[in-house]
């Protein structure tokens, strides 16, 4: 077949047909089209199997094995045990008490991040959606926190949060909002400081996604709202916001999952020995299990984290997708 018939590039369908004609693939009793679709999916599925499934299964297996320093090189010889899970679910044990507290703090971190990122992202997207001079430059500047290297930016935040020399306390004192220095990096406030930095780091992602969503809302809906005499707030509430629902769902889902598995920001901002308030699950797993070469225990903690994140994601997805309201673009 001449691929450049009449000087026009062939369509995907033509290429597909050519491949099917030249390479006969078994259809295993399925319809030709269906079988071919599975064959096309095979490479991706194989990669997913190697990259995702094997480590998950491996981690799950290790979580039931007493793999510690003494079984580092012959982990298959480690005895099977349910002790890791029993210890984690025992509130009175060192691991158990710290795990459940860390899980609670992870929820605070995840929910705080999601709300902060969404609100700040939405405000930014609405501002970017207006016509003004320098819009392109503004759109680029907004992306800076998201694309700047985390190590450099988080260390700058660390300096800003310092209780006696940081600019944040300086500012709050000069505005008369506080009289005594606040400790941001230790104690109860450490969970808020990692949340603030995480919001700052991720809000550009939400802003750009929501901006794309705003751009795809049909103009006719706004015209109809204007004819009906809707106020600006009513237009936002009954037109803009519902139309952004699918993109909102994606942002919320990603923020919850990303926050649950975020290690970089808590580690860089609070260091290896954070106050209990700032010890989110990822940091706890790293500190307690992997630093002490307790790989079996670390795997068990990670499995629970995975289950919690999956359940949350599933519930949220079910909740948002059940609604009849479907919006513009994702």
């Amino acid at each position: 077949m001449n691929l450049k018939e009449d000087g026009i590039l062939p369509s995907i369908a033509t290429i597909t047909q050519t491949v099917r004609d030249r390479i006969p693939l078994p259809s295993f009793g399925l319809e030709d089209e269906t079988a071919f679709a599975y064959w096309l999916l095979l490479p991706a599925l194989a990669m997913m199997f190697v990259i995702h499934l094997i480590p998950i299964v491996w981690g799950f297996l290790i979580s039931f094995m007493a793999v510690d320093a003494s079984y580092l090189t012959n982990w298959t010889q480690a005895p099977f045990t349910v002790d890791h899970y029993l210890t984690i679910f025992d509130w009175n044990s060192a691991v158990g008490s710290r795990f459940w507290f860390a899980l609670r703090q992870t929820f605070v971190f995840g929910i705080g991040t999601t709300i902060g990122v969404y609100v700040l992202g939405l405000v930014t997207a609405l501002l970017l959606n207006r016509n003004f001079r320098g819009k392109l430059a503004a759109r680029t500047v907004v992306l800076v926190p998201y694309i700047a290297p985390a190590v450099a930016t988080v260390f700058i935040w660390r300096m800003m949060f310092s209780s006696d020399t940081g600019i944040i306390n300086e500012l709050l004192v000069s505005l008369g909002l506080i009289s005594d220095d606040i400790f941001w990096l230790v104690g109860e406030n450490s969970i808020y400081s990692i949340t603030i930095v995480n919001v700052w780091k991720n809000f550009p992602f939400a802003a750009i996604m929501l901006y794309a969503g705003l751009q795809s809302i049909p103009e006719q809906l706004y015209e109809a709202a204007a004819i009906d005499g809707a106020s600006r707030w009513a237009t936002f509430r009954y037109v803009t916001f519902p139309q952004l629902k699918p993109v909102t769902a994606v942002i919320v889902l990603l923020m919850i999952v990303w926050s649950f598995i975020n290690f970089t920001i808590p580690y860089l901002l609070l260091g290896q020995q954070p106050s209990q308030s700032g010890e989110v699950l990822m940091l706890f797993i790293y500190n307690y299990a992997f630093q002490n070469t307790e790989y079996g225990l670390g795997a068990a903690l990670s499995v629970i984290l995975l289950v919690v994140a999956m359940v949350l994601s599933y519930l949220y997805y079910k909740m948002t997708m059940r609604s009849d309201v479907q919006g513009g673009a994702v």
């Binding site: 104690g187 020995q273 106050s275 209990q276």
Partner: peptide, 17 residues
């Protein structure tokens, strides 16, 4: 050592705040 670090650091931070 990790347990001691947490306990002592917690007391010092609580006192400071």
């Amino acid at each position: 050592e990790g347990i001691i670090n947490d306990a002592v650091s917690g007391v010092l931070v609580d006192a400071a705040t």
